[in-house]
Every structure is written in C-alpha cells, then in structure tokens.
C-alpha cells in the first residue's frame, strides 16, 4: 500500500464518519464543523487526484460557508450549545431507506459499471488547463454562473430586507403552537407580562 492509498483511505473514512456525525450530534455548531471536516477530507482526496486548484478552493469556500452556517445555527435553532440531547427528525425510517437505496444503487453502478481507464496525461497542468477552459471555450458557462450569483445576491437582499412592498416583513407574525393547531407559544404571555408591569408602575 502506497502513501497515496493510505492517505486516501484515512481521508475517505474521515469524510464519511464526519458526514454521518453531522446528523448525530446535539450541538448545531459541532454539526456544521463536522460537515467542514467532511469537506476538508474530500478536498485532500481531490489534491491526491491532482486537482490542485479544486481541492484548495474547496477548503476556503467551505471554511467560510460553514462558519456562516454555524452562526445561522446559533441564531435560529433551539439548543444551540448542544447541552441537551436533541433529535429533530421526521419520516426517519423512509429517509434512511432512501439513503441506503441511493448508496446501494450508486455503488452498484460503481462496481458493475464499465468505465474506460484514461488517466490525466503526464504533461498536463490541471490549473492552467482549468483557467484556459474557464476563460476560453466555457466562458459562457462561467459567466452565467457569475450572473446567477449576482442575481442570487439581489434576490437574497430583497427576501431578507426588513421592509417589503407590503409593509414590515414580520407584520402579523405569530409563533407556532406548542402542539399542532394549538395556541401560539410565547407571544401572548409576553404581552401579559408587559401589561402587568404597566400596572405595577401605576
């Protein structure tokens, strides 16, 4: 077994294990950093495959993305620190079935498929060839991705702004009930407390 093989198997094991732990940890911050570990392991495998730019690009893209992901987790999830056990899932059996079926089907393709063996030629510089492709033959594709990203930015700002065409974004917003269809949780109580406080003042 060569050094490359050994690194590959270690990274593959880390990628899969960390990917699995994402959905099996109580803490949301830990979940997003497990996903980051999975991405970094895949990035190292890409480096082993001589995709020098893609592997390193994956590192920096995912480090920023997962950092932002962790912040959103802490903003929106209950139990962000993971100090209590938590598992918020629905249709878990079906989901597991789908996951296993997809794994079996895709690895079936991998094992029984007949793929030609045409490795990267020796003299090829992957970074130069990628750059020439991005700004040469596939410039339209690349630029479309850029324009789509710009459209995303505009759309995201429009979606998240406090005020829209129809007034405040959180107008008439009511928290969900504690049980399905029940009274809204939290908010009326706050109003009660406010009124009580008012009374105390007088």
């Amino acid at each position: 077994m060569t050094f490359v093989d050994l690194t590959f198997f270690v990274c593959a094991a880390i990628a899969i294990y960390a990917g699995w732990r994402v959905f099996r940890t109580d803490s949301m911050v830990r979940a997003s950093f497990f996903l980051l570990i999975s991405f970094i392991a895949v990035g190292i495998i890409m480096l082993l495959l001589a995709a020098v730019y893609l592997g390193v690009a994956l590192f920096f893209m995912m480090a920023v993305e997962m950092m932002v992901m962790a912040l959103f987790m802490m903003m929106f999830m209950m139990n962000p620190a993971g100090l209590n056990p938590m598992n918020m899932v629905h249709q878990e059996k079906v989901a597991m079935g789908i996951g296993i079926a997809a794994f079996v089907a895709l690895s079936g393709v991998a094992v029984f498929g007949d793929f030609p063996s045409r490795p990267v030629p020796d003299g090829l510089d992957p970074v130069v060839s990628l750059g020439k492709e991005l700004l040469g033959n596939s410039m339209l594709v690349f630029e479309s991705a850029g324009v789509t990203l710009l459209a995303t930015m505009i759309g995201v700002v429009a979606m998240t702004s406090h005020r829209g065409r129809f007034g405040e974004a959180n107008e008439g917003s009511v928290p969900p009930g504690l049980e399905p269809g029940g009274d809204p949780a939290g908010k009326p109580q706050e109003n009660d407390q406010k009124q009580q406080g008012h009374h105390h003042h007088h």
Binding site: A15, M88, I98, G99, L106, S107
Partner: peptide, 29 residues
C-alpha cells in the same frame, strides 16, 4: 485509490446526505 473506491465513497456521502435532507426538520440541517 481506484475509481471504484472513489465512487463508493461518493455514493456513501450522497446516501448520508439524502438521509439528512429527507429526515431533518430544521431548514439549516
């Protein structure tokens, strides 16, 4: 490191991802 082992690792990641996407209740998860 062969194509088959690479594709099996990729299949495992896709499988776990599908499980997560179908089972998690929270948007971010």
């Amino acid at each position: 490191m062969s194509l088959i082992s690479l594709l099996i690792v990729a299949a495992a990641l896709i499988g776990i991802g599908l499980y997560g996407a179908f089972s998690q209740q929270s948007f971010v998860m």
